[in-house]
Design a protein around this nucleic acid. Structure first.
Lengths: 257, 257
DNA sequence: TCAATAGTGTCTCTTAGACATTATGGT
DNA sequence: ACCATAATGTCTAAGAGACACTATTGA
């Protein structure tokens, strides 16, 4: 067997070129809801949005980019990403997930810089507050389609595309929908959130399938008040709708069963 | 909004500490089959194995580690991993997949070294040949359990644990089983491969579910010869078994439907 | 009373899940 | 004839999928 690179590259051989930085970039997703002003109560319009920042320094001055920053030697890449996310939202403990590394030579004019990409799912209320509190014009939400059509800095178009693919897959296979919903939500809200991220998603008998606790093994459960009475909401319609909450059940999928 | 790190860390500020290398480590999985020597034809014993190398240099001299090596400035991390995999197997074009980054401070005594972990799925024939052709004693296959119980170099125990979790999940949700199977295989072979990676997997009516093309949408199809006759195999039993092949159908899973 | 959302009835066909049973063919 | 593997029969209960239908209530 041939020598392994890791043996050849010993501690003393510092004549090898080393990277010029290890950044984390974050695709911050949120779903905004805007009221439709008909006379009647209606379901809001929901849109999948991405937070971008306008660059002020070389390289890519004036272009929009994903937020991010360089990791320090004393922290993990994940910690770096969490720190950046907190800087953008003012809140910690949000859902953040690593999804890919970007290392194409020349991707960053500043040198050999391998970027680590995360996506975060944030409830709109957090970003709305943040934007309101800030008067800088260089941070904005764009719809996913808008952002994809822009000419982003670095290879961020590719990063964003990959992130979208990932979130679409996760939306259908995990319970990340809860990141975009209040603790207690109606079936329509859940359905709308799924459709916002995955427009192709369509289930005629959605309410039936998801509430038939036998097959879904209790993915969601009815919300009740202290007296055990079912909690209802009429924020979107005259007729009140049952509120549900996610349980902690983690569904296991399989193509073979 | 506060300044972003990426703006503060401009091209000229090279006073920041930079990483000392960007390696890729590869968890090379294979499934070995060993004949049971009963008089009768039987299904072979299958085991999930991992390729490890014994380190010859500082750090962790004499300890077992995952194969890997440092990326060059002129290649992507993925290309580096593919190169390493080809060095181990002598073959290119194998299934290789990125799954995580490891960046805990101090994980590598040589410095600030952020490692990128891949897993590869290799048919046993490729590694068997390789081992036979090579007289070095520092490359070996271990069963997954053995490897996990060892004290591996760096944080490779953690990497291996994560890789195992990932491959177990992928085995049930994607068609990676085909990486461990010949082009045409029997239902028992497929079942055995799945069970080797995911011992908990048990389906009473496996053959029925997977061959009922209506629900599985033709995940696999019967292998036939030139005349359209079904191809059979009796390598594991007296009664010949139908051979199947994977189609290119990619199943879409959802917890909501 | 209408609009917009919430939810149920009903039907057919398919699938899940559990077990029992039959098929094959070399040693 | 036996054994290990391959495959089918049969039954029940549950679910998928399609569509029509009823329920609620503020403006």
């Amino acid at each position: 067997m041939s020598e392994h690179i890791e043996n050849e590259t010993s501690y003393s051989s510092s004549h090898y070129r080393t990277p010029d930085g290890a950044p984390a970039d974050i695709v911050i997703f949120t779903i905004t809801s805007t009221e439709r002003n008909t006379g009647k109560k209606t379901l809001p319009l929901r849109e999948l949005q991405v937070l971008l920042i306008e660059r002020k320094r070389w390289p890519f001055v004036g272009q929009w980019a994903l937020p991010g920053g360089f990791a320090k030697e004393t922290e993990t890449i994940q910690a770096c990403a969490e720190r950046e996310l907190e800087e953008e939202t003012g809140v910690s403990g949000l859902h953040i997930e690593y999804f890919n590394v970007y290392s194409k030579p020349g991707r960053d004019p500043r040198g050999w810089i391998i970027s680590h990409a995360f996506f975060a799912l944030v409830h709109e209320s957090l970003l709305a507050e943040r934007r309101a509190a800030d008067d800088a014009a260089d941070v904005k939400l764009f719809t996913a389609q808008e952002a994809l059509a822009m000419n982003l800095a670095f290879d961020h178009n590719e990063v964003l595309r990959d992130a979208l693919e990932r979130i679409r897959h996760s939306m259908l296979t995990t319970t990340i929908a809860k990141q975009f919903l209040p603790e207690e939500f109606t079936i329509s809200e859940l359905y709308q959130v799924i459709q916002t991220v995955v427009p192709e998603f369509e289930e005629q008998n959605f309410i039936r399938k998801i509430t038939s606790t036998q097959s879904r093994k209790g993915l969601i459960e009815e919300a009740t008040d202290q007296t055990g009475q079912p909690k209802m909401s009429n924020r979107y319609s005259q007729r009140a709708a049952q509120l549900y909450r996610f349980t902690d059940y983690v569904p296991q999928l399989s193509i073979y069963s």
